[in-house]
Design a protein around this nucleic acid. Structure first.
Length: 377
DNA sequence: CCCTCGATCAC
DNA sequence: CCTCATATCGAGGG
């Protein structure tokens, strides 16, 4: 992390966090406007059993009935059993296309841009606003209007002196909201947030903080930093201590090529034979390979992940001596690892719930003919 | 330092 | 009942 920034500069920054509202469900509304009036739920069907899987996202009509992201599909259906509602599977390529178009509009504002995910990005508006938060509000309004007019997509924007504040701010007025928190208000703003509002603080970290007697954000700044480090580790402790004072040194970072590519699937409920496991592994490898090929990247590290029936994760990885872009290599090594897992770690086949293949330590190989030959196979 | 593995987060 | 993909951190071993 680059903390190498002079103090004068920090106070002047203006960062936008832009978040597309209920994104997948809103994309579906864009192509099927009739969905706007009824609860709609976009689902990730796992295929394990009928209707097994979770809610990816849903529109605000569905939220009125208590439906939420990450909720089991069956639970969502039960909440909506008495009303007309629509359940749809995800169509990621379609959402990506809408995302690309919207992100393009945002990038046209010119300054430093970091896309965090398909529906989220940060933009540095320091220069274009001349560090004026009133100007920033006008830009946010115009940006929102442009995206709405050109793509028919609504978004929520948080404006702050750093990524942390803008990220939290974008969640304050949703959907279609703008929340501006200037430098002077930032400390007060963060003090009134809940601990779990801080990005990076999930259930586990909240629990650890609680056991230190920390229940509010101002409790964090009162806590001894060394105690905090012992409990949370250096990075998280430092980040949180700063965050509790509305300080965030993290920089907007243009994201290049991916650092890892993976594919994970849920197995059908019946007890798998080893032959089936091998076939699934081959499918996973083929999918990862496709992705690798499209991105023109080679890998050096291969990881196989098993998720057991008790939801425990087990993973084994192997580093190759050389970078590889070969499906053969991928297949061969994934099988080696799976064999090792089953023999060494005494994992029985019918205890496997999900299986995944991930490649990492990736290298861009576009333009390298010798390696590209691998891809033609 | 590098490697491997697990944990955590958040989408 | 419990998806899927990615990034990051830290511990522990070498």
């Amino acid at each position: 992390m680059n903390d190498n920034i002079s103090l004068n500069e920090i106070g002047k920054k203006i960062i936008f966090h832009i978040d597309f509202d209920y994104f997948y469900a809103q994309c579906e509304e864009i192509r099927k406007p009739e969905l706007r009036d009824i609860p709609s739920v976009v689902c990730v069907y796992s295929g394990r059993e009928h209707d097994s899987g979770v809610v990816s996202t849903c529109n605000y009509e569905a939220r009125k009935y208590g439906v939420k992201a990450a909720m089991p599909i069956r639970a969502a259906k039960s909440k909506l059993k008495d009303v007309r509602a629509v359940f749809l599977p995800t169509d990621i390529p379609y959402y990506q296309e809408i995302s690309r178009n919207a992100m393009k509009i945002i990038q046209n504002y010119g300054d430093l841009f970091e896309q965090v995910s398909v529906d989220e990005c940060y933009v540095d508006f320091t220069k274009i606003t001349n560090s004026d938060f009133d100007d920033a509000k006008i830009f946010a309004t115009s940006l929102q209007k442009n995206i709405k007019e050109q793509i028919n997509l609504t978004c929520s924007i948080g404006v702050g002196p750093n990524k942390l504040i803008s990220k939290i701010a974008s969640g304050v007025n949703k959907p279609n909201g703008i929340t501006v928190v200037n430098q002077d208000d930032a400390k007060n703003f963060i003090s009134n947030c809940k601990i779990e509002d801080i990005p990076g603080v999930g259930p586990k970290t909240a629990l650890k903080l609680n056991s230190l007697g920390i229940k509010s954000i101002s409790d964090i700044s009162k806590k001894n930093i060394f105690e905090l480090r012992d409990a949370l580790g250096y990075k998280t402790a430092t980040f949180l201590a700063n965050a509790s004072n509305a300080i965030d040194y993290s920089q907007i970072k243009i994201r290049g090529t991916s650092k890892q590519i993976g594919k994970i699937v849920t197995l059908k409920k019946d007890k798998p034979e080893f032959e089936q496991i091998k076939m699934i592994a081959a499918t996973l490898c083929a999918s990862v390979f496709e992705n690798l090929k499209n991105k023109r990247q080679a890998f050096r590290v291969l990881t196989v992940i098993l998720i057991l029936e008790n939801l425990q994760h087990v993973s084994i990885s192997k580093s190759l001596k050389l970078y590889s872009a070969s499906l053969e290599e991928l297949n061969k090594n994934s099988l080696l690892i799976i064999n090792e897992m089953i023999t060494n770690n005494s994992i029985s086949l019918d205890n496997i719930r999900r299986m995944g293949v991930v490649v990492s330590d990736l290298k861009d190989i576009s333009g390298q003919d010798s390696l590209l030959n691998y891809f033609e196979n």
